[in-house]
Simulated scan of single mutants.
Amino acid sequence: MSIQTLEPRLADVGGIPIARLLPNKGKQPIGAWCFLDHAGPADFGEDDLGMQVGRHPHTNLQTFSWMLNGEVLHKDSLGNEQVITKNQVNVMTAGTGLNQGISHTEQSVFPDTGGSSEAARAISMVQLWIALPTDQEIERGFIIIQSYQRGRKIVLR
């Protein structure tokens, strides 16, 4: 077995650096994973708004986002409005079929703009995009998985 190091493609999305490792030139997709991204790391000054990703749609996808540092406010067309904090994971399922899909926004929040008192003026997040099987009916949804450092407590919201 050989190990190969892949170089990510870099882009700026919503004011932060995104390193996209998958897909990668010359490599086939890995199962249902269609994208693997790392947002950040980025530090924001006192006058900087941080990440500001405007409303955009998702269809036939599920995103698994793990917040490593910072906080992001997620708002979507299902009526969900939730701050994703450090060490939390959110799973957004856009669903499949003609009557499914989600549009949403993602914005950095800080202690003075709706974040927690511990919110860093930074962001680092890993996001896995999963292609949903279009031969199945999958409903839309959004959950937060809160993982605490001690006690391994998991809370689904």
Results as ranks from 00 to 15, higher is better:
residue 1 M to G: 14
residue 106 E to C: 03
residue 60 N to H: 11
residue 5 T to E: 13
residue 25 K to M: 12
residue 12 D to S: 13
residue 63 T to P: 00
residue 119 A to F: 00
residue 130 I to Y: 09
residue 101 G to I: 02
residue 38 H to P: 06
residue 36 L to C: 10
residue 56 H to K: 12
residue 92 M to C: 06
residue 111 P to E: 11
residue 122 A to S: 15
residue 32 A to E: 14
residue 88 Q to K: 11
residue 133 P to Y: 09
residue 131 A to G: 06
residue 105 T to F: 06
residue 106 E to T: 01
residue 107 Q to G: 07
residue 136 Q to E: 13
residue 77 S to M: 08
residue 119 A to G: 00
residue 138 I to T: 03
residue 36 L to H: 06
residue 55 R to A: 15
residue 11 A to W: 04
residue 149 Q to G: 15
residue 134 T to S: 07
residue 23 P to W: 01
residue 88 Q to R: 03
residue 70 G to D: 00
residue 43 D to R: 15
residue 150 R to T: 13
residue 112 D to P: 05
residue 108 S to F: 03
residue 143 I to K: 05
residue 47 D to E: 14
residue 78 L to P: 00
residue 137 E to P: 05
residue 44 F to I: 02
residue 125 M to G: 02
residue 127 Q to H: 12
residue 145 I to S: 01
residue 59 T to N: 13
residue 7 E to N: 11
residue 9 R to K: 15
residue 16 I to G: 02
residue 42 A to K: 08
residue 143 I to Q: 13
residue 70 G to S: 02
residue 129 W to L: 03
residue 113 T to M: 09
residue 28 Q to E: 15
residue 155 V to T: 14
residue 55 R to F: 13
residue 14 G to W: 03
residue 114 G to L: 04
residue 123 I to N: 01
residue 16 I to P: 00
residue 118 E to I: 08
residue 3 I to S: 14
residue 29 P to F: 04
residue 39 A to K: 03
residue 149 Q to H: 10
residue 92 M to E: 03
residue 15 G to A: 01
residue 99 N to G: 13
residue 37 D to I: 02
residue 144 I to Y: 05
residue 124 S to E: 12
residue 6 L to A: 08
residue 153 K to Y: 12
residue 115 G to W: 00
residue 13 V to F: 12
residue 119 A to L: 03
residue 87 N to W: 06
residue 56 H to E: 08
residue 95 G to P: 04
residue 19 A to C: 09
residue 8 P to W: 04
residue 42 A to L: 01
residue 75 K to M: 06
residue 67 M to L: 06
residue 49 L to N: 09
residue 81 E to Q: 12
residue 126 V to H: 02
residue 28 Q to W: 08
residue 58 H to L: 01
residue 5 T to P: 01
residue 36 L to V: 10
residue 18 I to R: 04
residue 85 T to D: 03
residue 103 S to E: 10
residue 132 L to W: 03
residue 79 G to H: 11
residue 112 D to G: 07
residue 138 I to N: 06
residue 98 L to P: 14
residue 92 M to K: 04
residue 153 K to H: 15
residue 115 G to N: 03
residue 45 G to W: 02
residue 91 V to C: 02
residue 130 I to D: 02
residue 6 L to E: 10
residue 47 D to K: 09
residue 3 I to T: 15
residue 114 G to P: 07
residue 71 E to N: 02
residue 149 Q to S: 12
residue 137 E to G: 12
residue 2 S to T: 14
residue 130 I to G: 02
residue 16 I to W: 00
residue 7 E to L: 08
residue 44 F to M: 09
residue 100 Q to K: 15
residue 139 E to N: 11
residue 106 E to L: 07
residue 64 F to C: 09
residue 24 N to S: 07
residue 49 L to I: 04
residue 122 A to H: 08
residue 91 V to T: 09
residue 111 P to V: 07
residue 110 F to Q: 03
residue 11 A to E: 13
residue 19 A to W: 05
residue 94 A to D: 01
residue 29 P to G: 11
residue 76 D to Y: 05
residue 66 W to E: 06
residue 62 Q to D: 05
residue 38 H to S: 10
residue 116 S to C: 04
residue 79 G to N: 10
residue 52 Q to P: 05
residue 104 H to L: 00
residue 155 V to R: 11
